[in-house]
C-alpha cells in the first residue's frame, strides 16, 4: 500500500523553525511505522534523523508523536493508521534534529529518585535477598518501564513546567519504593513530596494512554500520593 508521510523536520544548522517534509512510500500493511521511516531514510532522504536501536519495543529509542500521540514507531503497524501518517518529535524537549530530542533533563529527573536498590545490610540467606511472590507483585507493573519518554512527554504538565519530575521518573521510583528489599523509600518519598513531585500530577491519564508497555502510570503515581498521605 502507498502511504503518505508528513514528517516534522528541523536542522538547527540550516532551519530557523521546523517544517514538514512529505514522502510517499510503498509498504506492506503489516510493516511498522519504523520500517517506513527506514525506507524514507535509505531510499529518499538520508538526512532524515531519528533514534532507533532494537526495533522491537524493548530499547525505547524510537518514541515519537504518530498522528498526534506518543507511540513507539517499532510497535505501530502502518495498516492501523491508513494512508496518511504524520510524524513529529516528542513535545516538551528541545529538538536536536528532526525527531531526535534532548533527553538530558529527563534522565536528570530520573537520577534524583535513586533508581537503584538502596540497602546497606548484607543479604540474609546465602547471597540473595529473598522476597515472596506477593511482595514482588506489588511493584511488578512498574518494572516494565523502558525509559522511552512517551509518558513524560505526553503529560501536559511537563510541557509547561520544567521542574516537574514527570511520570517516567515517578514510575521508576515506584519500582523501588514498594520493593521489600529496598531501604531508600523515605528519601525518594521526600523528593516526591516536594513541589515538583507527585502533587503536580493532575490525573490527566495521558501517560497511561501513551505507555507502549501498558504500565498503569497514573495508578502508580496515585499510589505514591496515597502513601504520602497515609504513610502506608
Amino acid at each position: 500500500m502507498q502511504v503518505q508521510f508528513r514528517i516534522e523536520r528541523f536542522n538547527p544548522d540550516q532551519d530557523t523553525k521546523p517544517w514538514f517534509g512529505e514522502y510517499t512510500v510503498d509498504v506492506e500493511p503489516t510493516d511498522r511505522v519504523l520500517d517506513a521511516l527506514n525506507l524514507i531514510k535509505w531510499r529518499q532522504d538520508g538526512t532524515l534523523t531519528f533514534r532507533r536501536s532494537c526495533a522491537h519495543g524493548v530499547c525505547g529509542s524510537d518514541a515519537m508523536r504518530i498522528n498526534g500521540r506518543n507511540r513507539l514507531a517499532c510497535k505501530e503497524l502502518v495498516r492501523d493508521y491508513g494512508s496518511k501518517i504524520t510524524i513529529e518529535p516528542m513535545l516538551g524537549f528541545r529538538v536536536i534534529k528532526d525527531l531526535v530530542v534532548d533527553m538530558e533533563d529527563f534522565f536528570a529527573s530520573y537520577r534524583t529518585l535513586q533508581p537503584y536498590l538502596v540497602n546497606d545490610e548484607p543479604p540474609g540467606v546465602g547471597r540473595e535477598r529473598l522476597q515472596t511472590p506477593e511482595e514482588r507483585e506489588i511493584f511488578d507493573d512498574t518494572t516494565k518501564c523502558i525509559m522511552c519518554g512517551a509518558c513524560t512527554t505526553a503529560c501536559p504538565i511537563t510541557w509547561t513546567n520544567e521542574d516537574f519530575l514527570g511520570p517516567a521518573a515517578i514510575v521508576n521510583a515506584h519500582r523501588f519504593i514498594y520493593d521489600s528489599r529496598d531501604h531508600g523509600a523515605n528519601e525518594r518519598l521526600d523528593v516526591l513530596n516536594s513541589k515538583s513531585g507527585v502533587w503536580r500530577c493532575r490525573t490527566i491519564f495521558n501517560c497511561t494512554e501513551a505507555c507502549p508497555r501498558g504500565i498503569e502510570v497514573t495508578r502508580a503515581i496515585e499510589q505514591i500520593k496515597r502513601t504520602l498521605l497515609t504513610g502506608e
Binding site: 498526534g68 501536559p156 509547561t160 491519564f205 495521558n206 494512554e209
Partner: peptide, 15 residues
C-alpha cells in the same frame, strides 16, 4: 502550541 500538538485523549479533554 504543545496543547494543539497533542491529539487529546478523553482524560486530557476532561482536565
Amino acid at each position: 502550541s504543545s496543547y494543539r500538538g497533542y491529539r487529546a485523549p478523553q482524560g486530557m479533554l476532561s482536565w
